[in-house]
Design a protein around this nucleic acid. Structure first.
Lengths: 136, 136
DNA sequence: CCGGAAATTAGACAAAGTCCAGATTGCTCT
DNA sequence: AGAGCAATCTGGACTTTGTCTAATTTCCGG
């Protein structure tokens, strides 16, 4: 699939987000390559030629996307958060040495035996992370 | 179970760790309360009365414990790493709003359908995190 | 008691992320 | 077009977690 910046406008609107120039660029960075990016990487991509978007805006925008359900947060590395444009049900494979993060489709996976939740609690999400490393 | 500082000495020795004063204190902090603590919290506990252990030592020691398999690292919060004295097979329940982290025994849980690993890779661990929040 | 290895320390540093007050943008209404 | 207003964006200072280093202290075997 090939996403244009115009596609982003529609995508943002459909998620109730005012499509500003910066937001379109950030969304495009995430959705055009289907990768997991950190805030830093997003900033790097968006500001390749000349500086266009401030650090504060990148962080604010990613947080906004998260709230609006446009992206997902992936916490696997103690030092930085990754943002995932794939919001469908899936899990993650993390290569510890290289830091490479890839998706595992959830449809094949079954998790059973989860305990009852504490009173008045709702599940926000179930994260399954398979940590692998190159064999020594 | 009630852990004394002397118990810690044996525990450290059995994990091939030279039991120094600071290491005993840090191990005691983790094992006497069976909780998930961040490096910061460990430092707070160890240095309650008068400052006894430096920041560098706390971080070095926790990393050492991790390498030696005495504790486990739990990455659920984007801003800090937790250390878990329970190294048996188990998963985690994370209460997003309060930051409270608790164990889920792994024996009841079944995960099936995991894909083949890439060539030459070995699993280092499988983390299952159930994120919950107080119902609104 | 001496010498060296292991461990600890204070404090400077680095990186990720937050915060804020001021500047810009883009409406809408006239 | 211009004024008014809310939403957005910005630079930069700041905070927090964690790392690094060079100097000191502790611990032991001989």
């Amino acid at each position: 699939m090939h996403y244009t910046r115009d596609d982003m406008t529609g995508l943002l609107r459909s998620h109730d987000i005012n499509p500003t120039h910066q937001r379109i660029e950030i969304a495009h960075a995430l959705f055009s390559r289907q990768e997991h990016l950190s805030a830093d990487q997003v900033m790097g991509i968006v500001n390749t030629r000349h500086s266009e978007t401030s650090k504060a805006t990148v962080y604010n925008t990613l947080k906004l996307f998260l709230e609006k359900g446009l992206v997902r947060e992936v916490i696997v590395d103690p030092s930085k958060v990754f943002y995932d444009p794939n919001t469908g049900p899936h899990h993650h494979l993390y290569e510890v040495d290289s830091g490479k993060l890839s998706d595992i489709d959830a449809s094949a996976i079954q998790i059973s035996g989860l305990p009852q939740l504490p009173e008045g609690m709702v599940t926000e999400g179930i994260d399954l992370i398979v940590r692998v490393r190159r064999q020594t």
